[in-house]
Design a protein around this nucleic acid. Structure first.
Lengths: 245, 245
DNA sequence: CGTCCTATTGAAATTCTTCAACACTCGTGG
DNA sequence: CCACGAGTGTTGAAGAATTTCAATAGGACG
């Protein structure tokens, strides 16, 4: 590993586009040497996508996958009659891939302005062949997402509205800042989702979300400005209110 | 592939323990040649586990993973105050692995009498190195489970009690028979879960499950005997009642 | 035949939703 | 600069769905 690194330093430098990228350290790209990074970055494009836009899942174009560098992407499932559920939020430096089979109606949309680094799936597949560690990372990301999805199932199935809202804010605090390491909890941030979207994530109505938010504010656990800017005043109390998961 | 197979026929036969195993065809073992199967089966043991037993997650012993050959395994998450949620059911020929990180309190228990084929995780990891296809299958299984978990999030978050119960029965009908291919729907089976467990899977109470079951029976969609044996009388109506996911 | 355990059913209580009105923010155009 | 309107968020009150509590029923087993 360190030998590989030294060799790469002689060969070439880290591609410019990758230099400040979180994904290179904690994301899937961390499995690649600098020369492999160069190889991949030849096919990669960095894009700014405005908030509220559906991902063009590459129906006609070539299938692509992408690292989220900045912002939040929401993944939703919806029913024929319009009911919908947000089934996942991808934060930097998560990796976005066409979720296995898309049997049921699944869609990815930007929740905020988002920066992504995308490349053809084909290139990734080839690279997996050369770098088994890359395959491992992808499998681990899938397993981690599975575990997160299951955690959220507990929230959806067994928590009260109050606990759900607290869980949501606590989730954001733990994931919103890609720079933060390990237990890094962000105490102040702007909600990436509107009330309606929060409701769709929590299996509630926007009115109920609003009411529970007010309760959290009144109990001194959080403060809210402009109905979008959140400050967590008491992290422990928030964790407690979320059901202590 | 077919060349590989022919060669294996000359080398050795499919191990006895694997001969009637579904996992060999549709599960992860399908990636292995017969000689690799032989290699793996040297470390594998087939076990019968009675219903209602927690998996010994190998705390002290060596970490193992397993194929489910027969029966149903339930994966549950639970909260400090005892509330619990079943976050997944594993049917044959699913593969059971220590779910990534076990950050939150997760547990696997047999729902019915179960037959598993288990082996040390270490052996599997080594084999992945030699057979990249095995890694792919594992990743695909993880992605499939992720997709299933997300489907269930829609059920938990957005469906009514009636739709939830119908969805559950429909889920069983699609997964209970490992022999059934593709769209194989089992029309008659014994519920692998008690009412309380069904409730924990659906995010309801056992009383509500009972009531909705009665309604399904009264509307002629299913019939129930002994409160455990189910016959689906009208598959389309059941799919309709489940919300048409 | 009684006991234990699970399932069913009923009625009251609770939580969450629905419907409706109002408030706040922000941008546009008078 | 202010008024207006659209979109989003908040709050209230009535209604519905689900839970809780409690009683009854059904099977399995000694």
């Amino acid at each position: 590993m360190s030998e590989q690194k030294r060799q790469d330093i002689h060969n070439s430098n880290v591609p410019v586009v990758c230099q400040s990228c979180e994904a290179r350290h904690r994301g899937v790209c961390g499995a690649l040497s600098t020369s492999q990074l160069s190889q991949l970055s030849k096919h990669a494009t960095i894009q700014q996508v405005p908030a509220g836009q559906a991902f063009e899942s590459g129906e006609d174009t070539e299938e692509r996958c992408a690292n989220v560098l900045k912002g939040v992407v929401k993944i939703t499932k919806l029913m024929a009659d319009g009911r919908q559920q947000i089934v996942g939020l991808q934060f930097a430096p998560d990796f976005l891939t066409r979720s296995s089979s898309l049997r049921s109606y699944t869609e990815a949309q930007t929740a905020t302005d988002v920066t992504i680094c995308s490349f053809p799936r084909r290139v990734l597949d080839e690279m997996i062949r050369d770098v088994p560690e890359l395959g491992n990372r992808l499998r681990n990301q899938a397993l981690r997402e599975l575990d997160e999805a299951r955690d959220w199932m507990l929230t959806l199935g067994r928590k009260t509205a109050a606990e759900k809202v607290a869980s949501f804010i606590y989730l954001l605090a733990r994931n919103l800042d890609p720079e933060a390491e390990a237990d890094g909890i962000t105490r102040q941030f702007v909600l990436p989702l509107a009330r309606g979207d929060i409701a769709d994530f929590l299996g509630l109505t926007s009115e109920t979300v609003s009411r529970q938010m007010t309760k959290l504010r009144n109990s001194g656990i959080i403060s809210v400005e402009n109905s979008r800017s959140i400050s967590i005043l008491d992290v422990d109390a928030l964790a407690e209110a979320s059901g202590g998961s």
